[in-house]
């Protein structure tokens, strides 16, 4: 079976699981709150998601992993933030997002600007 891919945040969760498994889901929730800052609902959602992916199993409220640390591909997946709300109207986000279509040429230009500055020009 192909090793399931997990997101980085899910990976962090798995680290906790591997360290404490098998563990009651309620205790897992507490650990996640402490170490990850997750709300209980978030933890349960992740447990459900990962169990669907086949990464762990949750039987009678005891959670245990189905794959080992080595097997899981530490994620290089970044969940793409959809374009619809990225930097669009939702300025309710005190979103100091900085995005712009910056071309290679511009990147080089800017880098040169910075380098010159470092040299004290």
């Amino acid at each position: 079976m192909e090793t399931p891919k997990v997101f980085e945040s899910e990976y962090r969760f798995c680290l906790i699981l591997w360290e404490h498994e098998p563990i009651k889901s309620s205790e897992l929730v507490n650990l996640c709150k402490e170490q990850l800052g997750w709300k209980p609902t978030t933890t349960y959602t992740v447990i459900k998601r990962l169990s669907e992916k086949g990464v762990l199993k949750n039987e009678n409220t005891i959670v245990s992993s189905l794959v080992s640390k080595d097997e899981v591909q530490a994620s290089e997946i970044n969940e793409m933030v959809e374009k619809t709300f990225e930097g669009s109207l939702p300025a309710f986000i005190a979103a100091f997002t900085k995005h712009q279509k910056i071309s290679d040429k511009e990147i080089d230009e800017v880098q040169r600007m910075i380098d010159r500055f470092r040299k004290g020009e």
Partner: peptide
């Protein structure tokens, strides 16, 4: 801003200043 390049045509958002 370079990281952003992974995102395809991202519309210039309102209020965002050019990085340059």
């Amino acid at each position: 801003s370079v990281n952003r390049r992974m995102i395809a045509a991202c519309p210039l958002a309102f209020g965002e200043v050019g990085v340059k």
